[in-house]
Amino acid sequence: MTEAPAAIRFKGLGQIFKTATGPLEALRGVDFSVARNEFVAVLGPSGCGKSTLLRCIAGLLKPTSGSLEVFGLPVTDPRDDIGIVFQKPTLLPWANVEDNVVFPIKHKSGRVRPDDRDEARKLLKMVGLDGFEKRMPAELSGGMQQRVGIARALLLNPDILLMDEPFSALDALTREEMGFELLRIWQQHPKTVLFITHSISEAVLLADRVLVMSERPGGIIRDLKVPLPRPRSIETTSSKVMHDFSGQLRTLLLKRAS
C-alpha cells in the first residue's frame, strides 16, 4: 500500500509578478505540505504573499518557479474540489441568500436543479442561517454575510477549503464566534483547510499547524504544531498552553519585523 498523497504540496515554489515598476518577487522557495483533512493556518505580516499562496493553490496563478501539487497532481487549472472564502463576503446584492449559495452551480453549469437548492438550504442550516433563505444580503450583518460566503464555498462539496482572512472584516466578538462556528462545521464535515490570517490567536485557536511567513519575498520560516487538544472551546482561549504558544509566535513575528 502506497501512502496517500498530501492534499497540498509546495515544492520550492516562487512567484514573481511583472509590475510597472519592475519585477516584484512575492514568494520565494515555498516548501510545505498539508495532509488530508488537516487544518493549517498561514500567519504572516501584511503584504507577505499569503494571498498569492492561496491563489496558486486555487489555480488562478501560475507559479514562476518550483511546483505545486494538489492530491498528487500538479496544479495547472482551477479545480472543482477547491472552495474559496474571501476576505469580504462579496455576495451578489441582487440575489437572495439561497440564490447566492447556489450561485457557483448556476454560474458553472448555467442551471440550478431542485437538489442543489435542497443542498443550499442544508448548508444554510449548518452555518446557522435557517430561515434566512429569502433575505437579501443587504439585510444581513457582516458575520451573517460571511456565513453565506462559507455556505457558498461548501456548495460543491470541496475537499479543500481556502480561506483568505475570512473574518478580518468582522468586529472582535463576531470574529471569535465565527472561529468557533468554523471549528464546529469543520468537525462535522472534515476538510483540508488552509486558513490565511494575521491574527495570532485566531491561528492558534483554529489550526492543527501554524505556518509563519516572512516578509516579502514570502517564504515559510517556521512550521509549528499547535499543542492544543481538540475539540477546542472558550476555555482553550484562556489556557496556559495557548497563552505560551501565542507568545512564542508573537516573539517570532515581532523579531522578524524589527
Binding site: 491563489r55 486555487a58 488562478l60 482551477p78 476576505q87 462579496t90 441582487w94 454560474h107
Partner: peptide, 29 residues
C-alpha cells in the same frame, strides 16, 4: 465588479459570457 467574484468565476471555469451576464452586467446596473 469586485475582483473576488471574477476570481470565483475563473475558479469555477465558467464561460466568459456568463462572467458578463451573471456578474459584470448586474454589477453595472
Amino acid at each position: 465588479t469586485p475582483p473576488e467574484l471574477i476570481e470565483l468565476s475563473r475558479s469555477l471555469r465558467a464561460p466568459a459570457s456568463r462572467e458578463f451576464t451573471q456578474i459584470r452586467i448586474p454589477f453595472a446596473i
